[in-house]
Amino acid sequence: MTLLNSGDRVGETLVVDRLLGEGAFAEVHRVRHEYLGWQAMKVFKRVASREETRSMLGEARLLSTLGHPNIVRLFEASTVPTPEGLRGYFTMEYVPGGSLERLAAAHRPSVPTELVAEVMTQIASGLAVAHAQDPPIVHRDVTLANILVGYDAGGMRIRVSDFGLARRADPVTHLASAQGTFAFMAPEVLRNQGYSCAGDVWSLGTIAYLLLTNHFPYGGGAFSSYSPARFAKPLLPPSRYNDTVDPELDRIVVATLAVDPAGRPATAGVLKEALADRQRRLAEEPPPETTSPASAPPSVRAQRLADEALALAAVPGELERAADLMEEAVNLSPRLRELHLARLLRWRRGVVM
């Protein structure tokens, strides 16, 4: 049983639409704001005193200080009465395309190399803002599930979300306590030596390695061990699994996964610059053209979403909803991305052709 149900009103302007997902500490609903349209609402499950609720809403306070296109936007934070008692909540951007988990699943065994490079760059851009705070804010849980993939008039826009474990680092050591998801944890974090900006860089590198190879780094395949002993094995560069990965991207990804944090880019800002340098070099010497392999036919759900979007786009006043449906479709299917991405971007600009 969820704390909120479809049709429930929250305050004067929000109506609950449907549950998007839930974890041990919170559930996330899609809600309709009377004036601003779709939003996502995170509702905390715990019964809490006023002080505990203020602590739980620390994520919202952090987000309110980090305005950036690649960080999910915060709208409101408050409390809501539920059948189980008063609960803290906040509202943020709703991203119809879902998370990187969906994008990775659609492209298996590997996401196109330049798409991965763009994803890395945008994640690094968002995290760089957090890492540049004084003292730095470290996310501590950068995973596929916590990176959202959306599209606006300018193209794909990644948002870093779920800052629930984020903390300001110690102003002297720039370390925070170890939290997060084991498969994306840096070696020093697993050894309880604290979390730094370089720990977030490791997690981002793990994401990139997975997207490029469909393997976890140092594991030889699926993540199978929580033991730091696995880091004694040499790391195979992504190009050993995927021959479309160029030497420069190989070098960058391998650097993010240096076992010694001193060997990694120290912050996401440093990583962002390395990726930008690679892009500048590619622009000067374009790589040879390659033909992409034929993608699998869209799933029934993906095709249905695309068909509904195309029909809705012809209905006056429904272009935004059509774009949301198409966003879901293109993240579920490489074939539909190839066919409809340009159309989706036009729709985000308000253009129907």
Rank of each mutant, 00 (worst) to 15 (best):
L211C: 06
A313Y: 01
T213Q: 08
R251H: 14
A48Y: 01
Q39N: 00
Y226T: 14
I147M: 12
A342M: 05
V160G: 06
A309K: 07
G97P: 06
T91N: 09
F231C: 04
A329H: 10
Q279C: 02
V116H: 12
G205P: 09
P288W: 11
T79Q: 13
A302R: 04
D200M: 03
S196C: 01
W38A: 15
S55T: 13
L336F: 07
R335K: 13
F216K: 09
P265C: 11
F184I: 03
P69L: 05
V253T: 10
T53Q: 14
G263T: 08
F44K: 05
A322G: 04
R87L: 01
L20T: 06
R240A: 15
V129P: 02
P81V: 08
V300G: 01
Y94R: 00
P217Q: 11
G37Y: 12
T2A: 14
E101L: 12
T173V: 03
A128K: 01
L344C: 06
L86R: 15
S203E: 03
A232K: 10
R140G: 06
V142Y: 03
A258D: 15
H33N: 12
L3E: 05
S125T: 06
G350K: 00
A306R: 05
D200H: 05
G37T: 13
F163C: 02
Y226E: 14
G269E: 09
S177G: 11
T206M: 07
K233N: 12
I147W: 07
L282Y: 01
A186M: 00
A132F: 00
E320S: 13
R191V: 01
R337I: 02
G154R: 14
H68A: 14
G85C: 03
S110M: 07
N70Q: 09
A130K: 04
E93V: 00
D17A: 12
A222F: 08
V270R: 13
T143C: 04
L332D: 14
G67C: 05
V47Q: 12
P81N: 09
R304T: 14
F216P: 07
V315D: 05
F25N: 07
L319D: 07
P81G: 09
H131F: 05
S99R: 02
V189S: 11
T206Q: 04
E93F: 00
